[in-house]
Design a protein around this nucleic acid. Structure first.
Lengths: 352, 352
DNA sequence: TTGAAAGCGCTAACAT
DNA sequence: ATGTTAGCGCTTTCAA
C-alpha cells in the first residue's frame, strides 16, 4: 500500500493542476475542495477527492502562503535566556495544533534587539501573529510596538494587564496562595520564601500570593524570611543558606521555582537536615526535575504545553475571525503533593 | 533610528520591485545583488544596496522557496518519545545557524508512521533534507527509504554504519570506556552498569565501552552487574535497587544516562548509603539535571546543541555542493567530574 | 553586465 | 455551482 505521493513523469510532486486535469475540473474547483469553501456539488467534490487520493496530492504550503492573504504564519519568539526545556515544551504544544489551525509556525530568536528591531524582524518574517513567552510577555514597549503594526501577539504568563492584548496564564498569585495555605495547614508558621527573577513578573505575583496567604492567616510576612533568587539553581543555593542561617530557622521553604527548591534540598542535605522530617521544601512549575530528585518535590504544576497550544488557538481565532469571546485564557494549575512536605518537627500534636 | 521596514503607500512590505524602481534597475539585477550572483558592476551593486538599505528591504523567504529550486527547506523530524529538553537543545542548535546557511527549518513530528508514510510526509513538506535524532537515526528502513527518494538525511548519534549516509556523533563507546577507566583508576573493582533503552543503539555502544574497559583491566563484566533500564528515572530506581541488593554490592554505579544516575542516587539516599563516600554514581549526557541534584553528578558531556548545528552545516553542504569531504562528523565529549564520584570505601590506601 | 519574459503552485476577485 | 483572469514576490531561463 503506497502512501507515497505519485510523481509526474518529470519527477515532481503532483500539483493542483494535475489533480484538476485528472478530475476533469478547473484548478479553482480543486482549490475549493481543498479549502472546504463555498459550494461544490457533492458529485464534483467526490471526483476531486478521488483524484487527490489517487495522486496522493498535498497542497504546497509555500505556494499557499505566497498566494493567500498570508495570514497563516505565526512566530514563536524567544530569548536565549529561556531554558531549552521550557522552550521545548512550548514548541511541542504549539506544533501540536499548528496544523489543525492551518498555521505555519516559525521559531525566532530575538536577542538584545530593541522593541523596534524585533518588530522589524517579525515583519520581515512575514508573520501575522506572535507568541511571547516570558520574559518577552512583560515587555510593554514590545507589545505596544507590535500592536501599532497590527501584529497580533499573545502573551504567555504575563502580568494581568488592562489593555486588550491576548493572554494565556495560570493564576500565579492564587497558586502561590494555595501552596502557602497548604504549608500553613500542615502546621508551619515560619515559612521562608525564595523569590524568582525580578525580570519575570510572575515572580512578583507568586510573592504576592505568598504574602496574602501569610497575612490572611495572621502570620507575618517579614522581609527577613523573603530572600532574593533568580530562578537559577545557583541562586537557590545561596538563598537557602541565608534562610537556614536565620536565628529562627524556617520549618518550610517555598521556592519560586523547582530549580531553586532543588537547591534548597541540596543545602539541607549538606547540613544533615532531613527533608521533609525537619524541613519542608516546595517549588513551583513541576518541571521534570521535580520527579528526579530525592525526595521528590511538592510543587505547582504549570501546564506549559497546554499554554502554547491555547496561545495558538487564540491567535488562529484572532487572525481569522478577527476576535474572540475571551482574550484572556486562564488555565488550571495543580498543587502536586510529593515527598518533600510534611508537618513541622517538634510540635506536639495536641495539648502542651 | 528606525530599523523598521518602510511600507509602500498601500501598507505592504517593500518588494524586490520597489527596490528595483528606487535603484533604477531591473528586478533581476536586484535579485543578483541579493544572491551575490554572477557579475554586477560595483556601481550598480552599490546603488542597489543603498536602495535596499533605504527601504529596509528583506526578501520574502516564501516567494523564494516557491520560485527557486526549493533547496532551502530542511526538517527536524522527531517522535513524541523524545524529551522536550533534548528536542529543545537540538532545536536551538539547528536554529542557530539555519539562517547562516540560508536554510529554512521546519519541525515535524512523525509518530507511529511507517517509513513510507514518513517519506511521504517529508515530500509533502517540500523539504530536501532531514535531521534524524535518536531513535529515528537508527531506523534503517527509514534511512534507506529517504535515500531512495534522494532526500538527504543526517543522523544524529546513530550507530556507526557502512553506507554513505551522513552522521554526527560522539564516540559513545569510547566515552563509556573512559568513564569506566576513570572509575577503575579511582580504585573501583565492583562496578554496576545500568543499561539504556535498547531501542536506542547508543545504549549498546555505551555498554560495549564499559565491557571493554572492564576486560582491558582484567575485571569481569559479569552479567549480574549489568542491569536493564530504559533511560527513564523510574527504570533507574528499579535498576539501582537490583544492584544494591546484590550479595556483593558494587562500589560504583555507571548509569547510561543522567536520569537513571539521579535515580540511583535517590535509592542510595533512601538506604542511607552516602554518595560518594560509600557509593560512586555517574551518568551520561550532562543534562541540566546533573547540576541540580546533590551531590552533583559526574557525567559525560554530550554537546547536543553543537550536534544539530553541525547537522545543519552538513545538510547545507550536501544540498548545495552536493557532497562533503567528511560525511561522518565526530564531536568531542568531555568527562565532567563533579561530586558524585570518589575512591571506594574500606580500601586501605597501602599495604594490608 | 544587464534586462525581459515566463513561470513556481496556489488563491482572490470577478465572471458565468 | 464552476470557470477565468490575475496576480503573490521571487528566480530561472534566454536574449540583448
Amino acid at each position: 500500500m503506497a502512501t507515497e505521493p505519485d510523481r509526474t513523469s518529470d519527477g515532481k510532486l503532483p500539483t493542483i493542476r494535475d489533480v484538476a486535469a485528472r478530475a476533469g475540473v478547473s484548478v479553482m474547483t480543486v482549490s475549493r475542495v481543498i479549502n472546504k469553501q463555498s459550494w461544490v456539488s457533492p458529485k464534483t467534490r467526490s471526483r476531486v477527492e478521488e483524484a487527490i487520493a489517487a495522486l496522493n496530492y498535498a497542497p504546497s504550503a509555500v505556494a499557499r502562503a505566497l498566494a493567500g492573504s498570508d495570514d497563516r504564519r505565526v512566530a514563536l519568539l524567544y530569548r536565549a535566556s529561556t531554558t531549552s526545556a521550557y522552550l521545548g515544551e512550548l514548541l511541542l504544544g504549539a506544533l501540536d495544533n499548528a496544523a489543525d489551525h492551518r498555521l505555519h509556525l516559525v521559531v525566532e530568536r530575538c536577542d538584545g534587539a530593541s522593541a523596534e528591531e524585533i518588530v522589524a524582524q517579525v515583519q520581515h518574517a512575514r508573520v501575522s501573529g506572535v507568541i511571547l513567552p516570558p520574559p518577552l510577555c512583560d515587555w510593554r514597549e514590545l507589545i505596544e510596538a507590535l500592536a501599532a503594526k497590527k501584529i497580533k501577539a499573545v502573551s504567555i504568563a504575563p502580568d494581568i494587564v488592562d489593555s486588550g492584548e491576548l493572554t494565556i496564564a495560570i493564576d500565579d498569585k492564587h497558586a502561590a496562595f494555595e501552596m502557602t495555605r497548604h504549608l500553613i495547614e500542615l502546621g508551619h508558621r515560619n515559612i521562608g520564601f525564595i523569590k524568582g527573577n525580578p525580570q519575570h513578573r510572575a515572580s512578583a505575583r507568586r510573592l504576592e500570593g505568598f504574602r496574602q496567604a501569610m497575612r490572611a492567616n495572621g502570620l507575618s510576612d517579614d522581609e527577613q524570611w523573603i530572600v532574593p533568587g533568580d530562578f537559577s539553581y545557583r541562586s537557590g543555593l545561596d538563598a537557602a543558606e541565608r534562610l537556614l542561617d536565620l536565628p529562627v530557622r524556617p520549618t518550610a521553604i517555598f521556592a519560586c521555582n523547582d530549580d531553586m527548591a532543588a537547591a534548597a534540598i541540596t543545602i539541607a542535605h549538606q547540613r544533615q537536615i532531613d527533608v521533609p522530617a525537619q524541613l519542608t521544601v516546595c517549588g513551583f512549575d513541576d518541571t521534570p526535575l521535580a520527579n528526579a530528585i530525592w525526595p521528590t518535590l511538592t510543587t505547582i504544576h504549570q501546564p506549559i504545553r497546554d499554554m502554547s497550544r491555547e496561545a495558538l488557538a487564540l491567535l488562529a481565532a484572532e487572525i481569522r475571525e478577527g476576535g474572540t469571546a475571551n482574550p484572556h485564557v486562564k488555565l488550571d494549575y495543580r498543587l502536586i503533593r510529593r515527598q518533600s512536605d510534611a508537618v513541622p518537627p517538634r510540635r506536639p500534636k495536641t495539648g502542651v
